[in-house]
Every structure is written in structure tokens, then in C-alpha cells.
Design a protein around this nucleic acid. Structure first.
Lengths: 242, 242
DNA sequence: GAGTTTAAAATGTCAGACAATTAAATGCAC
DNA sequence: GTGCATTTAATTGTCTGACATTTTAAACTC
């Protein structure tokens, strides 16, 4: 691991990259301890604050964890699903909002991916997944539910649908598509009639999964896609007029 | 924006969180300048190095960029697709390798998602996408190509397939699924016969997209899924025996 | 008025110190 | 010897103050 003191890039960025590469390439394994900050400072011929800045960069990416005390130090961290989930969702959401992705594009992507899960979920969903979906449908039908809560529940429903496929990689990749839609969905005003239609489709999806009928689930999802798109268009039109 | 000096968490982590929240919530917009490091140090009642550690954390997540000089400082950064791509791929790859996800799970997720793209790609692919796919097929047929290069080309082929759907959100979400498979694919030894089968299926996919035939593309992808799974199983079995 | 010089502001880096935390080594009573 | 309390050492977390570097803008000169 070497750095170039004459490079225009920050030393701390270079050091972070060197260590990151070592972790990603597998040169350093999970729970392995990095040299202490002082030792790293000596190795890279920089000061300790500079090393610390580099370590903080890695900590921000969940690549290392630090422990204080005698046997402390920085350790290569096992990236957990939950952390990766959270990071993925944050990044996806920011990407959409900062780049002004239109509703149609995000919606299309989300439902295309969800439909890919439908047959697998129909085959493998557990009673737990079904129960979650039914519970969310029930919640969605409650009177006086705010639009935001309705969206929350919608996301939870669809997450259960995706998780039903029993493939954590799939769940992870889809989390970004489903959750990052939420800010866009929150722009929509859901009338009672809108909600009734959505709840009806959700029920059809849950019924289809219960019967292990992937095709029926796919059909209902396709209808939900179309319906959501029209709702989005209306909302955008209303927004533009205002 | 406030922090709690008595919290067990690092001050720099707290400060980073406070600023990150301000960015994510939209309180700070793209290209807005943060206060200078000294000003932030005053605001949060900490020293400048601590502030700097916080800023490096944010820089590691591509949330801010820094400029030196008189009008310099830290600015809220527009998250670009390319950066988000790279970050997403790195995280996905690490997640798979660190958690020992098995080939089957990763493969299933990848192809399920790709198949979701097939109809859209069949409808919208441009001549550019087709040309890329044909070029990669040609590359895959070259004699003496190393297994690693073959995998590279395979990823490039599939990326073109996904990009053909013309939905950047879809491309982004799928990048993680497709690219993170590469380390697993690299464990496979591709015999000439294996390659011939794969190239044949790639050709069928390209032909189908050329004819805007989504169903045919889907069928070929399904076959490719099954074939890749058997290759993976063989490789894992051989690995286990060794 | 154009070009040059200078000053100021900001980040990047360094050195050294002290505080806080943690685990191991040490010492002591029994 | 054993168990408990104490000390010690190692390490990260934080602070202070300084200097280097980069960049812009103002001041100055011609």
C-alpha cells in the first residue's frame, strides 16, 4: 500500500483508497485489525490527523469499525444487510431527488422489478409474508389515514411481496427501487376512491400469492402499475398548473 | 442543527449526521455552500479537526465536495449517476462476498431482474445497444480469451441489454445485481463448449431484441439462467472436492 | 485601462499534547 | 495459589496552534 505525496488528491483520500482497495480485494479479511493510527501515520509518512480523516472516510462507508481502549483499533467490518439496505435506500432516494427523475421512469422501474419477483414470491411466500400483507391492507383501509401513512403502508406491503421471494439479494436490490419512490408517491393526494382501487388490487395480489398463482399476481401488478401511473400523471399535472 | 456532547457516539459522527440530515431533508440544496470549517467548529463547539473528520465522512458518501482557495469551502454535491453506480456496485459486491451469498441466490436474483428488462429493452433498444451487444458477442468468441475477460465481456453484454430498456433508474438498480455477480462468475472455468453455448444464447437474445421480440428474449434469458446455474453448481462442486 | 502584485480566505497538513476508554499486567491480602 | 483491587499501557477521541497551499479579489503600478 503506497501513496503519492505529489498527487493533487488529498492525502487522506489516497490513504482511504489504499486501505479500501485492500479490503475489497480481500487482502484484509473481516474482523482483521488495521495497524494503529500512529503506525499508519508512520507507514504512509503523514500525520495522525490525516490518517484519522482517512479512517473516518472508511467508517462512513461502513467498511471499518473502531474500538477504543487497550485492544482497540480499527477493524474490518462485516457489511450487514441492514446497513447496506439503509445506505442503498438513502443513495437511491438522493439520486432520484437530486436528478429530478420523473415519476413515470421511477414507477416503471419499480413495477418492472416487482413483477419479476411475483412468480418467485407466489411459489415461496411464507404465511408470515401473507400475514404482513393482509395487515397492511387492513391498515390502508382505515379511515382518516394520512396520505403519508398510506404510502408507508404501501411500501411495507410491497416489501413483504418482494421478501416473499425468499431471496435476500433480490430484496436488497429492490429496496432501492421501492423505497426511493416514496418521496414521489408522497406528492400524490390519494382520494378515498383511489385508495379503494389500490386496496382492491393489493387484495387481489395477496389472494394470488396465497393460491401460489404467480400469473394472477403479475396481472394485478400490471394493473396496479397502470393505475399508479395515471395517478402520478394527474398529480404532476395538478402540480404544474398550480 | 445541534449535537449532544455527552452522547457516547463520536462528535464527528454526530456532526456528520446533522449535516447529512440537512442535505437529505432538502434543507440544503445542491451547490449550496456549507459554513467554513472554523465557523462550523464554532457552531458545534468543537475543534476544527473534529469538524474536518465529519466533513470527510460526508465526502466519502459523495454528499459534499470541497474546494480550496478564497471562495472555497464545502458544497452540497449533486450525486451523479456514475458515482452512485460505482458506489452501488462496490457495496453490492462487498455484501455478497462478506456474507458468503451462494451462487444460486445471486444468480437467481440477477436473471430474474434482467428478465424484467427484456420486454422493455426489446421495445426500445437503440442501434447503439445492439451494436454493443454484437461487439461483445464477437469478443466472447475470440480464441485465447481468459476466463476473466470473458466474464468482463459477459457483464458488458448484459449491461447493454439492461441499458436498452432506456430507463436509468432500472439500469442503476440492476447494476448492483449484474456486476456483483462477477466475483462469483470468476470462479467458473469456462470451457470452449461452455462458451459456445453462452455465445449462442447471447446471439439469440440479440436477435430477439433486434426483432423487438420480447418473448423470445425472455425465453433465451430463461435458458441462460438455467445453464449458468448448472455451470455454477459444477464449479462449486469442484471447489468443494478440492 | 490592462496587467501585475499583494492580501485575504479557505482548505490541507503537521506537531504535540491531553482526555477517555479498555484490557491486561501487577500487586496484595487471605 | 486464588481472588480482588490497582496500576499500567495501548489506543482512539479531542484540542490547540501553527504553517503550507490554493484560489480569488482587491490594490497597485504603469
Amino acid at each position: 500500500m503506497k501513496i503519492d505525496p505529489k498527487s493533487p488528491a488529498d492525502l487522506s483520500a489516497q490513504i482511504a483508497k489504499a486501505i479500501r482497495d485492500a479490503i475489497i480485494s480481500g487482502d484484509m479479511i473481516v474482523d482483521e485489525r488495521l495497524p494503529s493510527e500512529s503506525e499508519l501515520a508512520d507507514q504512509f509518512q503523514v500525520s495522525r490527523p490525516t490518517v484519522r480523516e482517512a479512517l473516518k472516510r472508511l467508517a462512513a462507508q461502513n467498511l471499518i469499525r473502531t474500538q477504543r481502549g487497550a485492544t482497540g483499533g480499527a477493524f474490518v467490518r462485516r457489511l450487514s444487510y441492514d446497513e447496506a439496505y439503509a445506505q442503498h435506500i438513502t443513495t437511491s432516494t438522493l439520486l432520484l431527488s437530486m436528478n429530478a427523475v420523473d415519476f413515470e421512469t421511477a414507477c416503471e422501474a419499480r413495477y418492472a422489478l416487482e413483477r419479476a419477483c411475483a412468480p418467485m414470491s407466489a411459489a415461496r411466500r411464507t404465511p408470515d409474508h401473507l400475514a404482513t400483507m393482509r395487515a397492511e391492507i387492513h391498515r390502508q383501509a382505515q379511515p382518516g389515514l394520512s396520505d403519508e401513512r398510506f404510502c408507508d403502508s404501501d411500501v411495507a406491503f410491497h416489501r413483504a411481496l418482494v421478501d416473499g421471494a425468499g431471496n435476500p439479494v433480490l430484496s436488497y436490490q429492490l429496496a432501492g427501487a421501492v423505497e426511493s419512490m416514496q418521496p414521489l408517491m408522497n406528492m400524490i393526494t390519494f382520494t378515498q376512491r383511489n385508495r379503494d382501487v389500490i386496496i382492491g388490487l393489493h387484495t387481489r395480489i395477496a389472494d394470488a400469492l396465497e393460491k401460489h398463482d404467480g400469473a394472477a399476481a403479475d396481472t394485478a401488478l400490471a394493473e396496479l402499475t397502470a393505475y399508479t401511473l395515471t395517478l402520478g400523471e394527474e398529480a404532476m399535472a395538478a402540480r404544474a398548473k398550480r
